[in-house]
């Protein structure tokens, strides 16, 4: 029986922006619930603009306007066994006690997030200082050199400035930064976009190996299904702010349930299959004004009347397998 170390309940939020003088709300995350087990990789898949990154930011607690959280709760079990309600803590406590120590974050554009005026080693030393962790400088440097070697970076990198490194190297430095305090949960938001597939494979293998050694959990966000197939234990499929399906990766790939997931899995290239891939007609909906009922109904080939009127309930089919679709909800 695996332990749930992070539980997200009915999280709801989005961006409050002004278009002209009109205030609009981009409903990017709509009533999302999920749990993260101990020692697993939970993938979040979905197309661009479906709310994956917003979900990551909200779970992490890095709420920077115009992002607002409207409702929901996030509870976290710390390494010490304490249960913390993240949304009830003030930002200062989260900053000191939780970020980087319990949960860390690999940002989406990880190539460009290093301070251009600081050497790599000073950026690491900075993170120690932010959390008031006393450590001998030489010890940090020695530790750093080891860490960077395990990420197959030359040890001289610590004296370089970010602009002197290649994109892939910077990405690995950022990953090393995120894993610095051996956090229990790592939120990886598209950790390997913008590098070629070879480098991507190297970085993912390193992450995988590190995770297996440290028994940490990952929430891995990516639009790339092959990344998910390689990394995930469980996968959540997101569409227009909803999690439409969640299950063990193998099951979801073999037997997708939700019509959207079906179309998604259909579109993947399969070994030996020479038929033309089918796409899904239409565009993802406007999150400012999402369609009533199921957000997927305008594109859904199986849509029935109730889909247009009422939001589908989340139907649990099995342990760790649920789908949000009227086709599986049997109102008895």
């Amino acid at each position: 029986m695996s332990l749930d170390i992070l539980t997200v309940n009915n999280l709801d939020g989005g961006y409050e922006v002004f278009i002209g003088n009109r205030r609009v709300f981009v409903h990017a995350v709509d009533d999302v619930s999920l749990t993260l087990h101990d020692n697993e990789v939970l993938g979040v898949a979905g197309e661009s603009g479906c709310g994956k990154s917003t979900l990551a930011k909200m779970v992490y607690g890095g709420i920077i306007p115009p992002l607002v959280v409207r409702s929901g709760s996030i509870s976290l079990v710390t390494r010490g066994g304490e249960v913390l309600e993240m949304n009830k803590l003030d930002i200062d406590t989260i900053r000191r006690k939780i970020w980087w120590i319990e949960i860390s974050y690999i940002p989406q554009n990880s190539m460009n997030v290093l301070n251009p005026l600081k050497r790599i080693k000073d950026q690491f030393i900075g993170v120690f200082k932010y959390h008031n962790i006393e450590m001998d400088k030489n010890e940090i440097i020695k530790y750093l050199k080891d860490t960077l070697t395990t990420l197959s970076l030359p040890p001289e990198v610590i004296n370089a400035y970010p602009h002197q490194l290649s994109g892939g190297m910077r990405q690995r430095v950022v990953i090393a930064l995120s894993l610095l305090f051996n956090p229990r949960i790592v939120l990886a938001d598209e950790p390997t976009t913008a590098v070629d597939v070879v480098t991507q494979r190297v970085i993912l293998s390193l992450l995988k190996e590190w995770r297996e050694n440290n028994k940490s959990s990952f929430i891995l966000i990516s639009h790339d299904m092959s990344v998910h197939a390689y990394m995930d234990n469980r996968i959540a499929i997101m569409y227009a702010g909803n999690i439409v399906e969640l299950g063990n990766t193998f099951d979801v790939f073999r037997e997708p349930l939700h019509p959207y997931t079906k179309a998604l899995i259909e579109s993947l290239i399969r070994k030996g299959d020479k038929s033309i891939r089918k796409g899904l007609a239409g565009q993802p909906p406007d999150l400012i004004n999402p369609p009533p009922g199921c957000r997927f109904h305008p594109r859904c080939p199986y849509a029935i009347n109730i889909c247009r009127a009422k939001e589908p309930p989340t139907t649990s089919l099995d342990k760790d397998r649920y789908v949000r679709c009227w086709l599986y909800a049997n109102p008895r």
Partner: peptide, 15 residues
Amino acid sequence: DFIVYSFLQGAPTNS
């Protein structure tokens, strides 16, 4: 990006 990243790393406001 690097300022937002420092914030998410837990950097205090003064830093």
